[in-house]
Simulated scan of single mutants.
Amino acid sequence: MKYSKLIFASAIVASLSITSCSNDNDDTTVNYTIPATYTFERNSVTSVDYSGQSSRLLMLEEMGNYIKTAATAGTIVDNAVLSNMYSNTNNPFSTTELNTSGKQLKNKTAASKDYFELFLGGGSTVEKTNVQAFFETQLTLANQASLGTVASAGVAGSYLDGSSSRLFAANGLEPQQVLLKGMMGAGFMDQVVNNYLSKNKLDEASNKINNTNKVLEEDKEYTTMEHAWDEAYGYIYGADGTKYWSSYISQVNADSDFNTLKTDIDLAFRTGRAAIVANDYTTRDAQIDIIKAKLALVPAVRAVYYLQDGKGKLTTDGGAKAFHALSEAYGFIISLRYTNKPGTNNPYLSKTEVDAMLASMVSGTNGLWDIDTLGAKLDTLSTQIATTFGFTVEQAATVN
């Protein structure tokens, strides 16, 4: 099928044109336009839908806010409520839209096609079960920390950090932050790079033939391949477009050492989607590699930033003020297991390596509370991550 030019939005400004000299179908030159925003239409209506991804972003936000509110109010975190939120059972959310969405976080945790169906990247069904259980344990730990005890070495409880009260497990980790940052990896990152942008997913069954022939899903204005790409996009930019990965992409991008990151990821998503419409699978695949590489930088840079930020606060109030930052670092390190290095179908750091890093952070009798030996560990982990991803500790530590 030959395309001369495709316009995807009624009002496109500062758009880009792309010419591909080959695709998977023939050697015909393909010319098409990349829209200035992620706006694609068919038959004068949008062909983009990532409502399910937006729902899951909002579900995780509500889980985090539930724990935060309980910590601030000094009330007990109800483990049953959080568990219901995780699996979306018994109408646990504040809106009917979420409760009746048919979506949940649990079944999208460590559930990608590549890593946990095809077992690439070292994944397995056993790991999937264990990862889900790990996050359910964070819910239990939040409950235990909310029972009225003041947090101290080896004791779960609450701690007043300025005007904010936070809940900490006995080892000093903050369950809320481990949940949020960890799920960004095990849920959202995994789905983006190991599922919806997987060629095994995009091209499975008759997806490629149907996309080439523009066979649409029933009662929809998109092909299955277009929709899969949109779902990947939704895990980054869904809901109001500023949550989780989108927010941290902006934070990393604010540093001069990484100041093309946001543009690179956004352009790759727009280019890949336009390429799918134009049946230009060579360009599509090139954008997948860009997204995989650039997105993986975000948890890597933020992990090093929070490791160093936490290290700098170890002597403040006996180290407790550092634990919030270190818990964020812990969650971002979890996310590194779900990255996908282009050309390998494996993470930049293996599950074994990530598990060892996490164990190192909380090793010792009282985990993070053992501040006398913690600083050296944090430096070692920072260097390991920075070296793997090709930046310096100093570059990452300057990100706000």
Rank of each mutant, 00 (worst) to 15 (best):
F8T: 01
S10T: 10
V13K: 14
I18C: 12
C21V: 09
C21S: 11
N31K: 08
T39H: 12
F40V: 02
E41L: 11
D49F: 12
L60M: 15
I67K: 01
A70H: 10
T72I: 01
T75W: 13
T75M: 09
A80N: 07
N84T: 08
T100E: 04
K103W: 07
L105E: 08
S124E: 07
T125W: 09
T125A: 14
N130K: 12
F134H: 10
L141G: 00
A142M: 11
G148E: 00
A151H: 06
V155C: 01
V178D: 04
G182P: 04
M183G: 03
F188A: 10
N195G: 01
L202M: 06
S206Q: 11
N211D: 12
N213A: 15
L216W: 08
E217R: 08
E218C: 00
T223Y: 08
E231I: 06
G238Q: 02
G238L: 02
Y244F: 15
Y244W: 13
I249Y: 06
D255W: 00
D266L: 13
A275W: 06
T282W: 02
R284A: 04
V304A: 08
G310D: 03
L314R: 02
H324I: 00
Y330Q: 00
G331P: 04
K341D: 07
P342H: 01
D355K: 12
M357Q: 10
G364Y: 00
L368S: 04
D370T: 04
I371M: 02
A376P: 04
G390L: 05
T392V: 01
V393M: 08
V399N: 08
